[in-house]
């Protein structure tokens, strides 16, 4: 039997914000793993802890209890971010850089040479349908366009794990579907795992594994399994 190494392992991970009476437990005792090629949708009502769990998986938040590990990735946090691409729910483009420069950022940080960088940026922008916006500044984009650029930035990065926090939330249905198509096609092409938080049933249906969260608890991961 081939041994498959997990990309992310959450072991009894909890994340609490604040302390004392005002403490808010966003994620509670979560145990889950993500393996290469996984396509997971996390659903749940607003405030159920979906985004926080995603941030824990990305290493952007540290668990207040339990642990999150990345067995396949570097132990160096900065290097690890090159293997993990995150699409945020809110605008996450650098205002002073244009679309092409924003898309190229993770590549530049990874030390990708200029020519390849340019090619990968062009390809990523093409894939999400915003090539014509390459020279625009974030403030000149609509919310949907900015979100597509954020996705393009992750695609150009070609990470082994893509964590997308409601990526279609600001898009119309058709564009949202197209974006999911692109994400699925790219993850398939580069063999990356994809974890998406969403409220959108059509997005849920496109993904193999469904996790459900309620009041900070991951309800279905253990029962439904994590492997695609």
């Amino acid at each position: 039997m081939n041994h498959i190494e997990n990309l992310v392992v959450c072991t009894d991970a909890s994340r609490t914000f604040g302390s004392g009476l005002s403490a808010v437990v966003a994620v509670q005792g979560t145990t889950a793993q993500v393996v290469p090629g996984a396509r997971i949708a996390i659903a749940g009502p607003s405030g159920s802890g979906k985004s926080t769990l995603l941030h824990l998986m990305a290493g952007l938040e540290l668990p207040t209890r339990g642990q999150v590990t990345w067995p396949s990735f570097s132990t160096d946090a900065a290097e690890r971010t090159q293997d993990i691409g995150v699409v945020f729910q809110s605008p996450s483009l650098v205002p002073a850089l244009d679309v092409a420069e924003n898309t190229a950022l993770p590549l530049i940080l990874a030390g990708v040479d200029e020519q390849e960088c340019r090619a990968r940026v062009a390809e990523a922008l093409e894939r999400v349908g915003v090539s014509d916006l390459a020279g625009k500044l974030p403030e000149e984009l609509s919310g949907g366009q900015a979100q597509r650029v954020a996705v393009a930035r992750v695609l150009a990065q070609r990470p082994r794990l893509i964590l997308a926090d409601e990526p279609t939330g600001q898009l119309d249905h058709a564009t949202g579907q197209h974006l999911i198509d692109v994400l699925l096609a790219t993850t398939a092409q580069i063999g990356a795992a994809l974890v998406v938080t969403t409220h959108d049933r059509t997005v849920l249906e496109r993904l193999d594994t469904h996790w459900s969260m309620h009041e900070g608890r991951l309800l279905t991961a253990a029962t439904q399994g994590v492997l695609s």
Binding site: A78, E79, T81, S92, V94, P95, A96, P106, L109
Partner: peptide
């Protein structure tokens, strides 16, 4: 006022030194 930009760079893998 540009903390957001620095935070985004940090998420994308920029090191403290950079």
């Amino acid at each position: 006022e540009r903390r957001r930009s620095l935070a985004i760079l940090s998420v994308l893998g920029a090191r403290r030194r950079q």
